[in-house]
Computed example of a mutant assay.
Amino acid sequence: MAARPEPMTPTGGRLAIIAGGGRLPHHVAEAAREAGEDPFIIPLTGEADGDWTGFDHEPLFVGDFAGVTRAFRARGVDRVVLSGGVRRRPDWRGIRPTIPFLFRMPRVVSTLLKGGDDTVLKMVIDLIESAGARVVGVQDILPSLLAETGPIGAVSPDDAALADIRAASEAATALGRLDIGQGAIAVGGRVVALEGPEGTDAMLARVAGLKAEGRISARRRGVLVKLCKPQQDVRADLPSVGPATIENAHAAGLAGVVVEAGRALVLDRRAVIGTADRLGLFLAGIERETMA
């Protein structure tokens, strides 16, 4: 069974959280504060939402590496968490580089134009660490968010769902290896949707539409599976599921949602479990090896 790591203990330096959209950055910030940290927040302009009053924060644009480096040095930052969704990758023409960064610009531009999401994230991590700070995972700050192995809630998958889990797991693994997405949906043992840049919720909406049109069997329910990409750096962009994911899976007529145990985040756990139980869906964590 996948074990949860122990929370990271504070160091002599300061923790920074680069915050995208959604509630996850707020969960991480509160958990860091409870652990004795005084986190500094960089809400990404045009991406981050919510109110950061009460936290030391400075909004910056995606790609403003000069501003990020300056802010880190001014506040003694030695660790960084990348948290929350980013809908748009930086436009290379809007990047504000530092002098050392200029030597990396050709590779950066090539990655932004041609690389998949995982490739871009690895580049961002490398650039942040070149500024003297160490990137750590959300799970290092808030290990209680990690999915465990087995059912998470009152409902368990039946035999039909297990066949869909196997099919969707195989597809999600292949998709991740190509650095395209993390999720796949199988209905009746057949893969019917793969996650692309549009994200999980849009994929679920697409399946709901296909079922309404009769292009996918409405009698068979189906399963959404979200797995880490095999080559993924787990310090960024772990698969996640929240209450909206469960609601959208229900709207798509699915029987449940599966995520990778120990390498996926369950956000607002109480609300997620309550929503899944109320709608009769299962939520479960699996270990990739068991699906091979």
Rank of each mutant, 00 (worst) to 15 (best):
R4C: 05
A202Y: 05
T173Q: 03
E198C: 03
V258W: 01
E260G: 02
A16F: 07
T173G: 01
G280A: 02
R75V: 01
I273H: 04
E287M: 15
G20V: 11
G21P: 06
A171I: 10
G153K: 07
D277A: 04
G242L: 05
R215M: 14
L204R: 04
W52S: 05
R288W: 13
I99W: 10
E195C: 12
A236W: 04
H26L: 10
P90C: 01
L145P: 12
G285S: 00
P39S: 06
R134K: 14
F103L: 11
K114L: 15
R104D: 08
R73N: 08
M1Y: 03
D268I: 00
L227E: 13
T11E: 12
A208P: 02
R221M: 10
L210T: 02
G256N: 00
G242N: 13
H57G: 11
A29P: 11
F55I: 08
R73I: 01
L127T: 13
R263A: 07
I41C: 08
G50K: 15
R269P: 01
F282S: 00
V191F: 03
W92M: 04
L194A: 04
G132W: 05
R104F: 05
L204A: 05
I152D: 09
R206M: 15
S169Y: 06
I128H: 11
F282L: 01
C228V: 15
D56C: 01
I99K: 02
P106T: 12
L210S: 03
F282R: 00
A255I: 00
A16H: 04
A255C: 03
P157F: 02
S110D: 15
D126S: 13
T173C: 01
L162P: 02
A163K: 14
I216W: 03
L162C: 12
L204H: 06
A184M: 12
G176L: 14
F55N: 09
V191H: 02
G132Q: 07
A252F: 01
R270A: 14
A2K: 12
L121M: 14
P157M: 09
L113N: 13
G176T: 05
A2Q: 13
G262H: 08
D164H: 14
D233C: 03
R177H: 15
V192P: 09
R221E: 11
I286F: 08
A160Y: 09
T98S: 05
R4S: 11
P106G: 12
P230M: 06
A255Y: 02
G285T: 01
L146S: 10
V138P: 00
P230L: 09
L281Q: 00
E47P: 13
